[in-house]
Structure formats: structure tokens, C-alpha cells
Design a protein around this nucleic acid. Structure first.
Lengths: 132, 132
DNA sequence: CCTTGACCTTCCAGTTACAGGAAGGCCTAT
DNA sequence: ATAGGCCTTCCTGTAACTGGAAGGTCAAGG
């Protein structure tokens, strides 16, 4: 398969696949004309990475997961640890966003949103009210 | 005030304040020795930006909000529109994270996390189960 | 008077995970 | 032979900073 084929099959842009080669996540073969040649195994790896990225794992976490995936002697505890770290990251981000959302929604609620200049949103940014 | 003073007062690192000058968010004066000189107004603006950034507004949104803040003839509707756009962005991110979290938590739950190699997390990444 | 340390300056590189685009080679069909 | 649709590499840009190097400035102490 050429890069266009695995791009279509994996759902990843060709650009991204070249980038993954650059950073050593995959290593396709090369044809005589310089074209990258991908095997089914490469495609599986790319699909694996695509799904892991879809769950929000960083590239480095994907690298680790891929290594564990290929290590038949792995302990599932090691995989679980990576996943739990990432879950904690997600929870932290969600909490941060929830707090932003809370304050922002409050300000929006207080704002008339008309032609007048008075604006609790700007006031809140200029000097926040005490938290209650 | 020198940059160190406004950094302390605003809670922003000096590096960040220099960056904000670079991109034209603020324009401190300069002393004869080349040092940046900040007024109370500069400090207020920096605090404003710091709070807006804390709510997750992008730099460009901050630029817009700052312009509205300084425009005494603004309509609060314009401010509200920026805030609502950002609220929608937050909601979108939260939904994305929630979905990641859902799938990830499911995989983690199914994984024994022991010394054995069998791992539903890796299996799920290699070939996801059908959604139910 | 000189030095020391804490400031300040500019400039350059690195971060994350790619995307866009230019310039040019290759391959298949007409 | 040429047109198109692939493919290649290389360079630049993104967001919002952070770290570090090399060097100027200033106030206090010996």
C-alpha cells in the first residue's frame, strides 16, 4: 500500500502519517522509486494510534502504548497505569473547564446584551466579585 | 513600575508581559535606560487580560474584549456575543472530554491491571467494540 | 571606587501535533 | 507526448508561551 491507501484506510491524513514516521512512531518500507510502502501491520499500528489519539492520549503516551501492545510479555498493570494517568488528566481538564464555565455563565447571565455599554462581563473581568 | 512590579501585581510572569507587548496587547513606555515603564492603567489592563485568560479566552478574544472595555460607546451585546462564543467552545470541549472519559473509563474498568499480558485496553485500541 | 547581586534588555530555540504550500519526481491513460 | 493524480522533500506557520544565553543597569556594602 502507498501512503494514500493507508491514509484512506486509517482515516489519518497522509501528512500526519509522514509526521508519525518523522518522529519514529512507524517505519514503512521504501519502494525503488522512494515511495513509502505500508504493510497490513503498519496499517494496524496506524489505526491503533488513531484510536488512542481519539481518546486524547498524547503522542508519547501512544508510543508507550504501542510498545506495550507489541510486547507480548507486558503486564496489563502497565497499560492500566498509562490509561489511569490519562484519565486523571482528563478529569483535571474537565474540572478546569467546568469552573471556567461556571463563572462565564454567571457573567453572561448578568449581561443584558443590548445596545447599552454597561456590561457585567467587562466589570467582572476588570474586578472580579468575591466568590460566594 | 518596572516589569517585575507589574508581574508581581498582576500575577503574570515577566516573560508573558513582554510577549503581550510583542503582539501588541499592551504598550508600556520606556525609560531612558531602556527599561519598560508601566502605569496603573497598564496594570489594570494586564489584570484584565490575566482574568480573561483564566476564563479560557484566547489571546485574540482578549484583544477584542480589551478593545470593547476601552470603548465607552460599546454595546454590551457585542461583549456578550464574544462570551457566548467562548461558552460554546467550552461546552464543545467538555463534551469531547466527557466522551473520551466515558470510553476510557470503560476500558480501564475492564482491565485487571495485574502481571498478565491480557489487556482489554489494548484490545479496545486495536479494534474497538461496537457502541451500544 | 569597586564589586556583588538583583534587576533589566534582546534574541534564539523549544514546546505540541500537526497543516499548508512550493518545487519537483513518478505513473497511468489517452 | 501530455495530462492528471499520485508521490517526494523541505520550509513555514500555528498558540501561547517558557527557558536560557549574553550582556546592560542600578543600589548597597566594603
Amino acid at each position: 500500500m502507498n501512503i494514500g491507501d493507508v491514509a484512506t484506510a486509517s482515516g489519518l491524513p497522509a501528512k500526519t502519517i509522514r509526521y508519525y514516521e518523522d518522529i519514529g512512531l512507524i517505519t514503512p518500507l521504501r519502494d525503488a522509486n522512494g515511495y513509502r510502502r505500508f504493510t497490513e501491520t503498519h496499517l494496524h499500528k496506524l489505526a491503533f494510534i488513531a484510536r488512542a489519539r481519539g481518546l486524547g492520549f498524547s503522542i508519547e503516551q501512544c508510543r508507550t502504548l504501542l510498545a506495550l501492545y507489541e510486547d507480548r510479555g507486558r503486564a496489563s498493570a502497565d497499560v492500566k497505569a498509562v490509561a489511569e494517568t490519562h484519565l486523571a488528566e482528563i478529569d483535571a481538564k474537565m474540572a478546569e473547564l467546568a469552573e471556567m464555565r461556571r463563572v462565564l455563565a454567571e457573567l453572561i447571565h448578568a449581561c443584558a446584551g443590548d445596545h447599552r455599554p454597561d456590561c457585567p462581563i467587562l466589570q467582572g473581568l476588570a474586578a472580579p466579585a468575591d466568590a460566594d
